[in-house]
Amino acid sequence: MSQVVAYFPLILKGMLLTVEVALASLLIAILLGLIGAVAKLSKSRIAKTIAGAYTTVIRGIPDLVLMTLIFFGGQILVNNIGEKLGWDYIDVDPFIAGVLTIGFIFGAYFAESFRGGILAVARGEIEAGYAFGMTPIQVFFRITMPAMVRHALPGIGNNWLVMVKTTALVSVIGLQDMVYNAGLAGGSTRKPFTFYCVVAFLFLVITGFSDVGMRWLDKKYSVGVRKA
């Protein structure tokens, strides 16, 4: 028991990193998701094709393969480019590689949620925006986006929960999240089961808190909507 306690600060430090990775990935995923959704709904065939290819790659290749590819391959790619431009040696940080990969993967799923959300926005609201003389960009940010969030929220929440679990993969590329630290602690104490149990429980804690947060968001964005 005392062994678990002795390592608890290390595990908590890892948990903090897990949350950081998840939040940073969320940011990238939302950004890519919005771009992806707009591309999918656009009339441009090129944009549609690119968005389609993006979704196919993500749906077809395991996250773990993508992550190792981006981490190990990215290191070589970045430095090959750097060599041509005369940069110094660049160290691809596992944090950045991990966050980019997870953000990239979930961008595809968010695009799907956002697309559904945008389609659910009442056409009249958008038309009203144009009637006021707003530009398409203004309409998107002032009307479509805020109205779409409510429709997209269940999908977003679901994606977030899956994303939190996916962060466990960053331990594979050496980032010291709570799974990695559990491996370290489990190795030193020869009690891996104990530490992986603790980490599993902490994942449930994170998702539990997320649930509460999501309910709050849902309430906030559903103001003015009557529910049965």
Binding site: I76, G86, W87, D88, Y89, I90
Partner: peptide, 14 residues
């Protein structure tokens, strides 16, 4: 090692 070699080569020249 493998990656370093590239970058270092340039800096040696420069």
């Amino acid at each position: 090692l493998s990656v370093l070699s590239m970058a270092v080569l340039i800096s040696v020249l420069l």
